[in-house]
Amino acid sequence: MFEYTVASDAATQKVGAALGQLVQPGSVIFLQGDLGAGKTTFTKGLAAALGIQQYVKSPTFTLIREYTSGRLPLYHMDVYRLENGGGDELGLEEYFNGAGVSVVEWPQFIEDEWPDDYLQIEIKKVATNDQQRQLLFHPQGQRYEQLVAQLAQAL
């Protein structure tokens, strides 16, 4: 596990951008955190590093937003609405095994669909400072352990 603290939304985006420089085709990133923790803010930074110039917004009502104009396609998912199941009907494995980067908000609702290897990032608000966030990186699998090591070095 790697832990990193940021003091602003801009800093959250910078960490997302640093990760965006390192991701490869088929990368799967799970973002966990309360409402307003900064999951979409993190994704905006990652998207910018991929060269995506479109405005990135939460896919809460559409479930999946596809951005294909960057170095790699970005599949931004918000599966909060699948709290009662239904992820198997979306064909998520096609995204997870595809040529793009999958970023999933609220992944606990599709846990049965998780691939064997992934990077889980917990974003937690720091109680003493409304802008500060603690980012906890939990790599699953050698590929993501190496990715997190590279990220730690870059930060």
Rank of each mutant, 00 (worst) to 15 (best):
M1K: 02
F2R: 05
F2V: 07
E3Y: 07
Y4S: 09
T5R: 12
A10T: 11
T12M: 08
K14Y: 07
K14V: 15
K14A: 15
G16L: 07
G16Y: 10
A17H: 12
A17D: 10
A18N: 11
L19H: 05
L19S: 06
Q21G: 00
Q21M: 15
L22Q: 07
L22G: 04
P25L: 08
G26W: 09
V28Y: 08
F30A: 14
F30E: 10
L31N: 10
G33D: 02
G33Q: 03
D34E: 15
D34R: 10
G36E: 06
G38C: 06
G38D: 06
K39Y: 10
T40V: 07
T40G: 01
T41S: 05
T43G: 01
K44G: 01
G45N: 06
L46E: 11
G51V: 00
I52Q: 08
I52T: 09
Q53H: 13
Q54W: 02
K57C: 01
K57S: 11
K57M: 09
P59E: 09
L63H: 06
L63D: 11
I64K: 01
R65H: 15
E66A: 13
Y67F: 13
Y67N: 08
T68S: 14
S69Y: 03
R71T: 00
L72C: 14
L72W: 05
P73A: 12
L74A: 13
D78R: 03
V79P: 02
Y80H: 04
L82A: 05
G85L: 15
G85D: 08
G86I: 05
D88I: 00
L90P: 05
L90V: 02
E93Q: 12
E93F: 08
E93P: 02
E94A: 14
Y95L: 12
F96S: 13
F96K: 14
G98F: 00
A99E: 01
V101T: 05
S102Q: 02
V103I: 13
V104F: 04
V104M: 04
V104Q: 04
W106I: 03
P107K: 06
Q108S: 07
Q108I: 03
Q108C: 01
I110Q: 04
I110S: 02
D112Q: 14
D112M: 10
W114R: 01
D116W: 00
D116M: 06
Y118I: 07
L119Q: 07
Q120P: 01
Q120W: 13
E122L: 12
E122Q: 14
I123F: 03
K124Q: 11
K124L: 12
K125V: 00
K125L: 11
K125T: 00
V126G: 06
V126E: 15
T128M: 09
N129W: 03
D130V: 09
Q131N: 14
Q131G: 01
Q132F: 08
L135A: 09
L135S: 05
L136H: 08
L136T: 14
L136K: 09
H138K: 13
Q140I: 01
G141E: 14
Q142L: 12
R143K: 13
E145I: 11
E145F: 04
Q146C: 06
Q146G: 10
Q146P: 02
V148N: 11
A149V: 10
A149G: 04
A149F: 02
L151S: 08
L151Q: 07
A152T: 05
A152L: 03
A152H: 11
Q153L: 12
Q153C: 04
A154F: 11
L155S: 07
